[in-house]
């Protein structure tokens, strides 16, 4: 009995030191006051959360509603949501293709999916920027073919960020979907056709409902890191269109407002957690 618990010690210790402690510290910092050059002073304050929604007048301390930060949060949700949908549209056919290859070929295809991830995310993101920029190969090809007069602005906008998110997180959609399709009993598909289902009816009434757990897992694995992503908006967005990750980064670097950065982090964690609980609850209800 005792020995069994000892087996858990390394993982429990890791979780304690690298997860529970930082999360508690973050939450604690979010209700303290900022020190002038970074760090916090031990003086409780709700100012960081107030700042999320209101702007305080420098002279008379009156609060006026300010939606700037909410907009950044909203943009993060939308960007991550779009990236999730795109990953789904690309990932489902890909996973289906791989899962239906002969047994010996599957692992080769799966390895090919992971090949780009042998390269560091930063390097890949910069590479994507080099491809998309005005002088990059895409614009070069378009112009030399005479399809466009000047360069299309492909980099430094929401489009580029979205592309960056999709290319970063696509495997996290493909792999759980692959696992779900791999387990799928294809005689169910024959049964559906046998019972007069058309191709589309078979997809909607049989395939998608049965793959739901895989779809949910893939969706969460893309959406959650997507909403807090830092590199894609920083590099591909050129710092012009902020996402929550960048805003948080700025608080700990340039602006030196640790409590505000901690408050933003806490809000992000809360939003993610609520989303997770909602999904888990719905899944549990539909199981019953």
């Amino acid at each position: 009995m005792k020995l069994h618990r000892l087996l858990l010690a390394p993982s429990l210790g890791t979780i304690l030191i690298f997860m529970a402690l930082p999360i508690s510290l973050t939450t604690l910092y979010s209700v303290l006051s900022p020190a002038q050059y970074g760090g916090v002073i031990w003086q409780p304050s709700a100012e960081a959360y107030v700042r999320l929604l209101f702007e305080r007048d420098i002279f008379d301390d009156t609060l006026t509603f300010n939606a700037d930060y909410l907009q950044i949060l909203g943009r993060s949700v939308v960007q991550a949501g779009l990236a999730t949908i795109l990953c789904l549209l690309i990932g489902l056919p890909t996973a289906w293709f791989i899962a239906t290859r002969p047994a010996g070929k599957k692992s080769l295809w799966l390895m090919l999916v992971t090949v780009p991830y042998w390269v560091n995310l930063l390097v890949r993101t910069i590479a994507l920027l080099l491809i998309l920029r005005d002088e990059g190969p895409v614009n070069g090809a378009l112009q030399s073919l005479g399809l466009t007069d000047g360069p299309l602005s492909l980099a430094y906008n929401n489009f580029a960020i979205g592309l960056g998110l999709v290319s970063s997180f696509l495997p996290f959609m493909i792999l759980p979907l692959y696992a779900a399709i791999e387990r799928f009993d294809f005689s169910l598909l024959e049964a559906a056709y046998d019972l007069h289902a058309s191709r589309w009816q078979a997809v909607w009434s049989v395939i998608l409902p049965i793959l739901r757990p895989g779809l949910i897992a893939g969706g969460l694995l893309v959406f959650i890191p997507g909403i807090g992503s830092y590199l894609a908006p920083d590099i591909l967005g050129g710092g012009k269109t902020l996402m929550l990750g960048n805003l948080i980064g700025m608080q700990f670097q340039g602006s030196r407002n640790w409590p505000f950065g901690a408050a933003l982090s806490t809000v992000l964690m809360t939003v993610t957690l609520v989303a997770l609980i909602l999904v888990a609850r719905r899944a549990a209800r539909e199981e019953a």
């Binding site: 009993d185 019972l195 049965i210």
Partner: peptide, 12 residues
Amino acid sequence: NTVFQHYALFPH
């Protein structure tokens, strides 16, 4: 219509 060997009932 077919009755399949392992029934192939829709589990959901």
